[in-house]
Design a protein around this nucleic acid. Structure first.
Lengths: 227, 227
DNA sequence: ACCTGAACACCGTTCAAGT
DNA sequence: ACCTGAACACCGTTCAAGT
């Protein structure tokens, strides 16, 4: 009694919000933030641009939703650990890597303060700050310092990646050309930037990122000892 | 022998890059990043949109240049101090306030890695890191941690400000509505965000920002002691 | 040499018309 | 009820034509 071949009205199944978000992620991963266009999206979904507005409020809503899917996945996959500071390092590193792999997440997070993806991160990091023994009155400060740092570095890294992609260079060549530009700066006006250019070539973004997290954790530990 | 009234060809004086940048800053301050439009800009300068392209490469070049003017001014006006850590605090706070007053600087900085405004900040902060006695091999790490933090918090703050403006709320009402949203979250799924919502209402962004800088400086001091 | 502004190739979003 | 896609009101950018 099963119909072998129902005649579909226009598409086999109704358009869902989830389908739209998945297609948006594919577009964003393939060609960056500029690649997410309502027209490109509707073409990929074999529909008209208007159909999408039945499932999302607007483009920024879609971008935040796409970001949230990846953030939720990233946080879920971060390896848990017994020690809160090790867990914070693992969470931070997982987010760093996710933003590195999908640079558009960086700007999407920056544009969505207080929205769900940010709340997910806040909550996961905040729970570990609490477990670290930071007194309740200082928990907000400590957590938002960690979040600011993670998003700040992540955002810069994402911008580097986007720029490198636009110029068709890989990461190393891109950093090399940046270092070369800095090396040409007037040493009298920009002494530090001029001098540091040499270090740019041999540095490790990921290790430097973690070193900053450790700096913040060390600061928290110092405050705890003083208490 | 001075001509009292030269007949101007079409405008009294030739268009300059500086005029364009100043007009862009006015537009950005008046109506945010969305307010900077080549059409609005050319209307304000009493010319056609094409004329502007003789003086700037493209819109992102213009945004970076506008950002650079404000960053240079901000750094120049930051009160100098004898102690390097006090100078770092002053620089950070000056940048925080500048981004708060001109939220578009936040995203402009994020979009311009390695460009002049970022180099200015890197250099000024880096010189103080050096003066702090951080060993040369660790100077890049320490400086980029500070920069990441400053831009990260600045960016979030800017996003808050932009969002608040779009909703026609002042800062307090905006944070209140955000806290209210968080308070409604499922405490089982988001225990920290749910609990921290109450602290949102009474916190001081500026003081919290500085506390994070102090955390980083404390971490640097701890590393120095261990050396 | 520099400005002018129409024109081009796009956007996000809406909405009458279809099914 | 949901999709369709033409249409609207914009963009950044270019370039022949002017002065």
């Amino acid at each position: 009694m099963v119909k072998k071949a129902r005649t579909p009205s226009r598409r086999d199944e109704a358009l869902t919000r989830e389908q739209i978000i998945d297609a948006a992620i594919e577009l964003l991963d393939a060609s960056g933030e500029a690649g997410l266009t309502l027209r490109a999206l509707s073409a990929r979904l074999a529909t008209g641009p208007g159909a999408i507005y039945g499932h999302i409020a607007d483009k920024s809503d879609l971008l935040t939703a796409a970001c949230d899917v990846l953030v939720a996945r990233t946080l879920d996959e971060a390896p848990p650990s017994a020690a809160p500071d090790a867990t914070i390092r693992a969470l931070a590193l997982a987010l760093f890597d996710a933003i590195d792999a999908h640079p558009w997440i960086g700007s999407a997070l920056g544009a969505a303060p207080g929205r769900l993806p940010m709340v997910r991160i806040l909550d996961r990091v905040g729970r570990q700050v609490r477990a670290l023994g930071v007194p309740e009155a200082a928990q907000w400060r400590a957590t938002s310092a960690l979040l600011g740092y993670i998003l700040g570095i992540g955002g810069q890294n994402a911008a580097n990646g986007q720029l490198a992609r636009e110029q068709g260079l890989d990461r190393t060549d891109f950093l090399d050309s940046m270092a070369a530009t800095w090396a040409m700066l007037d040493p009298a006006e920009y002494p530090f930037a001029h001098a540091i250019a040499a270090q740019m070539r041999e540095h490790d973004d990921r290790a430097d990122f973690l070193a900053g997290i450790d700096l913040l954790l060390a600061g928290l530990a110092a405050a705890r000892r003083k208490r």
